[in-house]
Each structure stands twice: as structure tokens, then as C-alpha cells.
Simulated assay, not measured.
Amino acid sequence: MIVARRETLTGRVLLILLMTITVVPFVSLFVTALHPSGTYPEGLSWPAHPQWSNFTGAFRAAHMSELLLSSALIVLGVVPASLLLGTMAGFAFGHLRMPGHRIGFLAFVLGLTLPFEGIITPLYYQVRDMGLLNTRWAIILPLIGLFMPFSVLWMRAHFVNMPDELSEAASIDGAGTWQLFWRIHVPLAKPALSSLAILLFLWTWNQFLLAIVLVDDPAKRTMAGALGAFQGQWGTDIPLLCAGSLLILAPTLAIFLIFQRRFVSALLQGSIKG
């Protein structure tokens, strides 16, 4: 009993510490954003007269409405395509197990070790030769390819645990491979699909490197990529910069808070099956 209480107490203390480490930077950004524009606040001191207008000022200065539209278009180009291709490939590797699937699976595993920074130079020249520089396609197409290894492995982890008897019963009833995929396995894969969609959304929305290297026009970047241009223009105005950073972070925080239960349930489901 004493050991169990100590372990429980230690776990709670560690959780509190981790939560504090995570929350303090956001609190610091929020408090700093409320100081008068052009000042240099120190520490976490609450301003005598909070300047809530800094958020509206940052929204106008950064042209947030254009950035929201651009980020939404990029997300709509990346996430559905990555989900479709990753699910189909994951089904092929995890359930159909076609000839050579082990070699193909190994290739996708190796793809996980490929960092964005390591391919940014050849990717730039390839996108330039395709005539896609300074367009949203310069972000959408590379992200679809770069997200494929994780998407395939994520969905394969789901399909590999599906019982073969389910497919055999559907085949006896006359279902082909395509019907087996769409009508049987895809509906059962909704938890894995929803959690993967959340991850892909967060990674696409927060994509910074490809946006600043491949697109010169800030209005065609993701919101995180446009932060570089905003910082260059308003880098000396710390409160306004903090307000802009919080506005850029707000959609990702909202999505995670709304869908966190579904995301955690998908992770727990995968751990139980594995």
C-alpha cells in the first residue's frame, strides 16, 4: 500500500510538472500580448491596462483572413489525399499482403527516417523545374509524399489486426476486393482514420520549412509559414508579435481540444489490439 501511494504521488507530481512546463510558455505569450504595443515586458507581470486591441491589430497586420483561406486550401489538398492513399496502401500491406509486401513495407519504414531538412535542396530544384514555385501546389504535393510513410504505417497497424475471417465471410457473400475495402474495412477503421486526420491536419497547418523555402508570397503560405514574414515586419513589437503567434496557434489548439477524446481512444484501441 505504501509503495502504491508513493507511485501514485510521484505520478501526480510528474504530471503537474509536465503540465506546468507546457502551460507556462502559453501563459507568457498571452500576458505579453496584453502589454502596450512597442513595450518590452519583463517576466509574467500582468499589465495595468490590458491591450486587448493587440489581437485585432495583429489580425489586420498579418492579413489573417487571407492566411486562414490559404491554410484551409492547403489542408484540403493534403489531408484527404494522404488519408485516401495511406488507407489504400495500409490495407494492401496490412490485410491483403500482396507479393513483395515486406520489401515495400521496409521502404516506407525507411521513409520515416527521411528528415524534411535533408531533402529541401533537391526538392526546391524539382519544384522549380515543375514550374510550381510560389504556388500552393509547391507545399501540397511534397507534403502528400512526405506524409505517406507515416500514414501507411499508421493504417497498416490497424488493418494487420483485422481478423481474416471477416474478409473470408464477405468474400463468400460475393464481395470483391474493392467492396471488401470500402464497405467492410473502411467503416471499421474510422477511429484510426480520425486520429490520423487530426495528426495530418496539425502537421500541415503548422508546416513552416516548406512554406518559407518554396513559396515567396506570404499570402500563399500556411499560417505558421507566414509567421516568418510577420516576424520580420513586426519583430521589434513584442506584444503584437505574441498576439499574432497566439492567433496562429489558436486553430490547432481548438482542433486538438475538440477531438482529443477521439484521438486518445484511437491510440488506446491500437494498444489493446497490438
Rank of each mutant, 00 (worst) to 15 (best):
L18G: 15
L247I: 09
G225M: 11
L241D: 10
V3T: 10
V3I: 13
M162Y: 12
R262F: 11
L196D: 05
F30E: 12
L123F: 01
G11I: 02
L73V: 09
I21P: 02
R183V: 10
A107P: 03
L133M: 14
W178G: 09
L143N: 06
L146P: 00
E7Y: 13
L29G: 04
I255R: 05
M1C: 02
P99Y: 04
F263H: 10
L83F: 05
W203M: 08
R128E: 13
S195Y: 07
W205Y: 15
A175K: 06
E42I: 13
I258A: 14
I212A: 06
G145C: 02
L253A: 15
A219P: 05
T121V: 13
A92C: 09
L106Y: 01
S82R: 03
L68A: 08
F93G: 00
L68M: 14
F26A: 07
F201Q: 03
L202Y: 07
S37W: 06
T222E: 08
V264Y: 03
W234H: 15
A58Y: 11
L76K: 10
V31E: 02
G131W: 05
L34E: 07
R102K: 07
A192V: 08
W205Q: 11
T236H: 07
S167C: 00
G228W: 12
I16L: 15
F116K: 15
K220Y: 00
S53L: 15
G274L: 05
K273T: 12
H158L: 04
L18Q: 10
L193E: 01
F116E: 15
V31N: 03
L210N: 02
T8L: 14
P218W: 12
M88W: 10
N134Q: 09
P80A: 09
T22I: 13
L34Q: 02
V13K: 01
Q179W: 12
L18N: 07
S37H: 09
L193G: 08
T252V: 15
T236W: 00
A243F: 12
G43K: 02
V78K: 02
L146I: 11
F159S: 03
A61F: 11
V13I: 10
R12K: 07
R262E: 11
G118A: 14
T22E: 14
H185M: 14
E168P: 00
L9Q: 08
L196I: 04
L34K: 10
A266S: 12
V213T: 09
Q126C: 04
L84G: 11
M64T: 08
S37L: 08
L68Q: 05
F26L: 14
G270Y: 01
L141V: 12
F91M: 12
G111T: 00
L202S: 02
L96E: 13
F108A: 01
A48C: 02
G274Q: 07
L106M: 06
V3A: 14
V213E: 09
T39L: 04
G270E: 01
L44P: 09
D164M: 08
T113Y: 12
I120K: 01
F93I: 13
A197N: 11
T252S: 15
A61S: 15
F116Y: 15
F55I: 10
T87H: 03
L106A: 10
T121P: 01
Y125V: 04
A229D: 15
L180P: 03
Y124R: 06
